[in-house]
């Protein structure tokens, strides 16, 4: 019984708490950042009332969400109506568990791994948990008992299911030459020179993964589930108060996690150029974390950049893109990778 309370447990607990808070903080500030980026792109000012430069805006929004009147449609299924946003939020918070956030931290004479769980099926875990999130949307949209919400939910679920396939296949190519499903191993295999980053070995795979990540996060040009010009609010039409907040918030968390996964899979995760020249282990850890987060922030910005630039697809065009373009391309990418690997073995270089 006693051996349960190891120092490791304490480490992990602290790490979980920190990750939880950081995820929430980044998601909250992504909303602020999104509004600022949108304002910048649209030649507006954006939020600037709450605090200097409006930096307290997310707090004000959160407070507002909590104090809003809670409206539950009479004809809705009460239990599922509450369950929907909860599932969506929980699943999106769970995905961050397997991501290696930095080099091991040497502190108090012990080595602390900056990863909550280095499970050997890490990437599969991410896919599994992310695809559970669609239940949140589906249940929420269905339980609202509103036609627009139902249409949004149907769009969301069919979109996420069809894009998950191409996404998974694009990652298979990485697994083929990394030989591991563990996120840590994938990141470690990209250490050293910048040319070891998977983006150079897998440009096509990266492109497919990026497009699918947009679709998974329901971001423009794949924001059909909630496109305000057609479906009013999509699956969250009937939601109000903090339950709406959970839906919106979970999307930003998804965006953050997607950016982290993209960085880990294709951009070397916490690796950065000239890593060997840093000798101080503490400094190395700090720099590695900073490196991962700067990559993540770049991708979050990229998500926003796309959103405020291009129009969205039509439902059938989106399905066509997923099944008829991305899926065959992903399979072709696997073949290509396999071919190269065989050739490499054959020529022995």
């Amino acid at each position: 019984m006693l051996e349960l309370f190891t120092p490791e447990l304490l480490d992990k607990s602290i790490l979980i708490l920190v990750l939880f808070l950081v995820t929430l903080g980044i998601a909250a500030y992504s909303t602020y950042f999104e509004r600022k980026v949108a304002a910048f792109m649209q030649d507006r000012i954006g939020p600037d009332r709450a605090g200097p430069f409006g930096i307290l805006q997310p707090l004000a929004d959160g407070g507002k969400m909590f104090f809003k009147e809670e409206i539950m449609p009479n004809a809705s299924d009460k239990l599922l109506f509450i369950l929907g946003p909860s599932i969506f939020m929980v699943t999106s918070l769970m995905t961050g568990v397997v991501i290696p956030w930095g080099k091991d931290l040497e502190m108090f004479g012990r080595t602390i791994t900056l990863q909550i769980a280095d499970i050997n099926i890490g990437i599969l875990y991410v896919f599994g948990v992310v695809s559970l999130g669609v239940y949140g949307i589906m249940i929420g949209g269905w339980a609202s008992n509103n036609k627009y919400a139902l249409l949004g939910a149907v769009r969301a679920s069919s979109q996420m299911i069809s894009y998950e396939l191409a996404m998974g296949l694009s990652v298979v190519a990485i697994l083929m030459f990394t030989g591991s499903l563990s996120m840590k191993d994938i990141v470690e295999s990209q250490s050293g020179s910048i040319l070891n980053w998977n983006i150079f070995a897998q440009p096509l795979g990266f492109l497919i993964f990026l497009i699918c990540a947009f679709a998974e996060c329901n971001r423009t040009p794949f924001d059909l589930p909630e496109c305000e010009s057609e479906l009013v609010g999509g699956y969250h039409t009937e939601y109000s108060s903090m339950k709406l907040g959970l839906f919106l918030f979970a999307e930003y968390i998804n965006m953050f996690i997607s950016s982290a996964v993209i960085s880990c899979l294709y951009f070397g995760g916490y690796n950065f150029p000239f890593m060997d020249m840093v000798s101080n282990p503490l400094l190395l850890t700090v720099l590695s974390v900073a490196s991962l987060f700067s990559k993540i922030f770049f991708f979050i910005f990229f998500f926003m950049w796309i959103r405020w630039t291009i129009p969205r697809f039509r439902y059938d065009q989106l399905m066509r893109l997923g099944w008829q373009v991305l899926l065959p391309l992903a399979i072709f990418n696997i073949l290509l990778t396999g071919g190269f690997m065989t050739l490499k073995d054959y020529l022995k270089f």
């Binding site: 649209q42 030649d43 423009t220 924001d223 010009s229 405020w308 630039t309 291009i310 129009p311 969205r312």
Partner: peptide, 16 residues
């Protein structure tokens, strides 16, 4: 038309 297809940004410039 841009807004209804999801491209909101052009709209703000044209309104200026």
């Amino acid at each position: 038309i841009g807004v209804d297809t999801g491209a909101l940004t052009g709209f703000t410039y044209m309104f200026q």
